[in-house]
Design a protein around this nucleic acid. Structure first.
Lengths: 144, 144
DNA sequence: TAAGATTGAGCATTCAATCTTG
DNA sequence: CAAGATTGAATGCTCAATCTTA
């Protein structure tokens, strides 16, 4: 009297719901420093690249479409966290450059994000956390 | 030489990334019958309730804000899957009613969703699937 | 005044079409 | 013509404000 091999009713839904909840928590915490998850992700890539990147590179590294980056950078620019600059090597290209305010927000945001990660996953012990990672890798390989 | 208890660097990101990938897969499959995950969720609640529900009830059951439902029902109405009707018991209220086309789409969509769920989670054996569920419950309790 | 629904504005994302530059 | 960026339209979500009805 056990589940049939292919029985996963509700599990996908449960996983997607959990992700939504966790994401909402992270967004709420980040909003205290004027950031969202997508904005923090963009600033992180900029920071890793040493302050600036062509928009097309940013799109590639965030695995999204270019038009998305155009608009995300619009919002970051409105926030004063990023500014656009010319790319001397290619006049078609535009550079997203982190401003001092952007770096400050990034540093605070990165701290908050890590703390949120610890808080949300603090229920799991070492074994559970490792198991979770292995399950994620397995599913990611299948779906990716 | 093991991770400190609070070390979860990247795990939240990995989980959110996985959820995004799984969601994208489900959306792609559902788009074949003109549905999205939110649309299928709404039709599911309508079906469970016996074809119709006041918009406020739909919002409550989908755990979202009322204005969201207004717009979701707008789109479902444009698709021909739902129509709005008066609520005889309260003139402030409006009923979302599933149309025949809506029921047909729901039935196909529910099939596709279940198949997608099985496909995406088919990598996991019985033990892993149960463990996943327990981890989700643990994290959901913490975050919910 | 409360509740139900809607509207308007903002964030985030995609796709298709377009403009500029290579 | 390709590539980089942008714009416009669509989906989906939130919040704040508003309108109607209870």
């Amino acid at each position: 009297m056990h589940d049939s091999p292919g029985d996963h009713i509700g599990r996908l839904q449960a996983l997607l719901h959990l992700a939504g909840t966790l994401q909402a928590h992270a967004e709420t915490r980040l909003s205290e420093v004027g950031l969202s998850l997508p904005k923090l992700a963009a600033l992180t890539k900029l920071s890793e690249a040493g302050e600036s990147l062509p928009l097309s590179q940013l799109a590639a590294r965030l695995s999204c479409v270019k038009s998305n980056i155009t608009q995300l950078v619009d919002r970051l620019e409105a926030d004063g966290f990023v500014s656009r600059a010319a790319d001397s090597s290619d006049r078609r290209s535009r550079l997203a450059v982190m401003t001092p305010a952007g770096r400050a927000a990034f540093e605070k945001g990165a701290q908050i994000y890590q703390q949120t990660e610890r808080d949300l996953l603090s229920e799991l012990d070492e074994v559970e956390a490792r198991y979770l990672t292995s399950l994620i890798e397995k599913l990611e390989k299948r779906a990716g």
